[in-house]
Design a protein around this nucleic acid. Structure first.
Lengths: 329, 329
DNA sequence: TCAAAAGTGTTATCCTTACACCCATGT
DNA sequence: ACATGGGTGTAAGGATAACACTTTTGA
């Protein structure tokens, strides 16, 4: 390494970044009685975050420290989302100081899953519903009316704006894929693509900041500072994808739960309703849970059996999915 | 952001990292006539890498610049792998300068896929076979004998070393899962877990560097500097997983190819043999390819139809996998 | 004629999907 | 009795896996 760096930096020695600062940003997810939620600071306008410091033993421990310091929450399951050096960030502050002292910000984002049981009282205001930020992502009550009423017409106008040609058709195609227009199916995993499309079309507040061209277009969903809403979109997309092939939902469940509670959690995350009988069979057939022997003292309806997650599955099928037609197994 | 950072750094102002340096590291994969290969520098002992500089417009463009500068190769498909701040790296150099000037290195790794057609001549020495670094990962000719002959006995010894208790059983269990021992199935995706296990057991050269305890244990596979081999393992694991649900193999294929060539490429990456008739049906049924109308002027056997990748699939099924039993679709 | 590779047919099995229906409890 | 949620049966359709077999070329 040292050899390489030395050899190659002869070319651009003075431009090597020695003074980058590193930001850690967390998308902390829980399902509260309010529905799928994310842990925020600053009245819901930002995700918990802070600089990586020398006192931190690792990136993850730094993230844990910041989240705990800013929100009081201890994190369990954590996975890395994405790292970026957004040019946006160089803007105002550091850029104009002069050639020598330019500063770059590297942002490393994480997805964390937690049980938000202590989410009552004043701390509960830190939890904000996903779908306040992304109202078009909740299909649980059918297609959100705003898609046809607000998004579709403005996306069409945005496409037309490109001047009739390949670019217009390209925009139409992207919008149709992302939002399930023209009879296409809705794909709940395309959270990031949808946000980026609305950003390009200047239909989210964040996009109008640099352009100043606000006003007449509808501003959709609660905005956040900097690119935090984009990071949140990335986290939701990752989670919607991951629940399908890894048993991560259980990180969000209490130790003991009914199958309907589990189903409601999956529905909250995916933003879609699932078929109850088949869902139960899917879970049982995969041997993800075991009965506790207890039942709920529920208020209404027949008492439900209580289940707990079978931690053993994490050992057994580390990953099932084959999908390759292997020979002579 | 600014507000948050200011408020929180009162606590540890002097420790904030303003002088982190950021390294970009590339796992560049191609399938050459030598088999699945990775682009290296320094006689195969390192991956192409270099510091992120102010001249770079983005992380990706910085990576492209370094790879092109060090190897002459232009990259196509790129995706981010993982970002880490390894404590190992603080070692020798920067740590001993003094309290104030501590320096941290952030490494951002990427996976790149390319067609290595220009991989002849002197440049070809930059391409090294995967399985020189990971000889236990190639199952194409059946179970590699070294697993039973070398790895299994030493892993057993390493487990016993823990002193008979839960820790010993835990080590045995991990080894069995990772290497498919005790009648378990081989899971080709566990590349990283296997490398980490061998590292813990001090059976790779990299592990003996810090300990100095080398010598009597067998050193398996070609080592690399720093943690480059671990990064390579991460890249291989990601690719082995991804070919199963996203049509990325085609990034490694020439514009026109036969189904057997495609199959051989998949086999090279996964390290496993696939069933030819079923593989063909899988590909055709997914409508991933279309016939060109041409056939090969092959040297031996019946001429094969030539195919090309149907780029349209990238639009059509952005991602198929449902796996959730949706209701009233 | 034979080796080597291309390619087709067919079946058993499993998983997914959809529909229909019964069960247990509180009001 | 009926509303609400819990829970089971089953059959059609599709995908996968395993087996056997035919076709087309060059040496």
């Amino acid at each position: 390494m040292q050899g390489l760096a030395a050899a190659s930096s002869t070319q651009a020695q003075s431009e090597k970044i020695r003074d980058a600062s590193v930001d850690l940003i967390a998308v902390v997810v829980a399902v509260t009685n309010q529905g799928p939620s994310v842990l925020t600071v600053e009245q819901g306008s930002a995700l918990p975050s802070g600089p990586f410091e020398l006192g931190h033993r690792s990136l993850q421990s730094g993230l844990r420290a910041w989240v705990e310091h800013q929100t009081g929450h201890q994190l369990g399951y954590i996975e890395q989302l994405y790292t970026f050096a957004d040019s946006d960030r160089i803007g105002a502050d550091s850029d104009r100081i002069g050639g020598q002292r330019q500063q770059r910000v590297i942002s490393i984002s994480y997805l964390a899953l937690t049980r938000a049981e202590h989410a009552a009282g004043e701390a509960s205001r830190a939890w904000r519903r996903w779908y306040d930020y992304f109202p078009w992502e909740d299909y649980r009550s059918g297609i959100p009316p705003m898609i046809a009423e607000v998004l579709q017409p403005h996306l069409a106008a945005w496409a037309a704006e490109a001047g009739l040609g390949t670019e217009e058709r390209e925009r139409q195609r992207r919008a149709a894929i992302a939002f399930g227009l023209d009879g296409r199916d809705w794909n709940e995993e395309l959270v990031l693509q949808r946000y980026e499309l609305l950003y390009e079309a200047a239909m989210v507040e964040e996009a109008t900041r640099r352009l100043g061209q606000s006003a007449f277009l509808p501003i959709t969903g609660t905005p956040m500072i900097a690119d935090h809403r984009r990071i949140l979109a990335t986290g939701i997309a990752r989670l919607r994808s991951k629940i399908k092939y890894r048993p991560v939902v259980f990180e969000l469940m209490p130790p003991v739960f009914t199958l309907l509670q589990l189903q409601r959690t999956v529905e909250a995350l995916s933003g879609r309703l699932v078929h109850k009988p088949n869902f139960r069979r899917l879970i049982e057939q995969q041997e993800l849970v075991e009965e506790t022997g207890e039942t709920t003292a529920d208020t209404v309806g027949r008492p439900a059996k209580l289940f707990r997650f079978r931690h053993a599955v994490l050992d057994e099928r580390v990953a099932a999915g084959t999908k390759l037609p292997l020979s002579r197994a």
